Computed example of a mutant assay.
Amino acid sequence: MKLFLSTVLAVGLIGVAGAEDKKDPTAGKWVVESVTRDGKVMDAYKGGVRVHDAGKYTFTLPAESKLPSSSGTYTVDATKTPATFEVVAKGGTYDGKTLPGIVKVEGDTMTVAFVEPGKDRPTKFESAAGSGVVLAVYKKAK
Results as ranks from 00 to 15, higher is better:
T81H: 12
G72D: 01
T93S: 10
K29C: 11
G107R: 02
Y94R: 02
L67H: 09
T75D: 07
P82Y: 08
S71Q: 14
V35E: 05
S69W: 08
G91S: 14
V41W: 13
R37W: 09
S69G: 09
G39S: 08
W30L: 09
K40C: 04
A27M: 15
T75A: 05
D38T: 06
S69T: 13
P82Q: 08
F114K: 00
P100T: 03
M42V: 11
P82A: 10
F59V: 01
V41P: 12
E64C: 07
G107P: 00
L61K: 00
G107C: 04
G48L: 05
S69M: 10
K66F: 13
S65W: 09
T84I: 06
A113E: 03
D53T: 12
T73P: 03
S71Y: 15
K56L: 14
T36D: 06
T73L: 11
S71F: 15
D53C: 10
G47K: 08
E106V: 12
K56Q: 14
K46C: 00
T84C: 02
F59T: 01
T81I: 11
K90D: 10
M110L: 13
G55A: 14
H52G: 14
Y57Q: 08
T109A: 02
Y57R: 05
V76N: 04
T60I: 15
